[in-house]
Amino acid sequence: MKRILPVFFIFSVFITGSYWSAYSNVGSTIYFYNPETNINNFATLKTAFDTYLVNHGGYYFQPFDSRENFEAVIKEKKGDIYLLSSWHLKALQQKNVPLKIALVGTSKGNTMQRKVLSTKKDIADVSMLKNTVVAGAGSEEYIHSVLKQILGKEQEALLKDIKILIVPKDIDAIMAVGFGMASAAISAESGLDKLAMINPNQFRELHSLGFSEKDYLLVAATLKKPERQEAELLEVLRKMSEADAGGENLKLLGIDGWRAMQ
């Protein structure tokens, strides 16, 4: 009996420890919202990321299509890690939301991107965009803000005479110019590279009227200094590109890896 008790005690500690260790991560969630795209792929994102994350520590992924709802969960500090655009992060930081970047997304080795205003070559300068349609992927507020930055103070008055057409993705916006549904497009520079690859004739018909400032691609941020659980989740996220399934998931977000911020 004397020998059985310690064995039973050790066994109980092991079992309960394993139990808590296995389930302590339940509920740890990555929240995602990106106003720089308008592609309705939330069900696919949810399935793909959950499948991966549940098998890599029991984490979950929650995409949002509404900025208000996403900001509400940040306010309630519900998430452990938030994936968002750097434009959105800056807007939140200006409202004193203490989000700090932990990881920045990479694409073909770059962590930064800039947006470009493209038109057909018969539109020689931005003043010719009065009473025209500009296509862009993302929220209207975001496209408006990028356009304002590209137009600058001198041409800002043009904004009220420009109609913004929201399309699902960058390539739709750029092709909308080529096929005559819009006079100009706001897209990432990489969007033009895509067009050069898939439709070189149309690419040759376009030129750029202006660029935004460079900004990070998607970022992963936390509200406080990551504790053990958040650090583990960040590590799982950082290593996603090392696995085939993880790499494919990142491509759904338009990135191919993560780089840690010092």
Binding site: N40, T44, T47, L252
Partner: peptide, 13 residues
């Protein structure tokens, strides 16, 4: 082309 996954709405597995 895996880069094209950024343009997919739905993936059927």
């Amino acid at each position: 082309n895996q880069d094209a996954l950024d343009s997919v709405n739905k993936i059927v597995e």
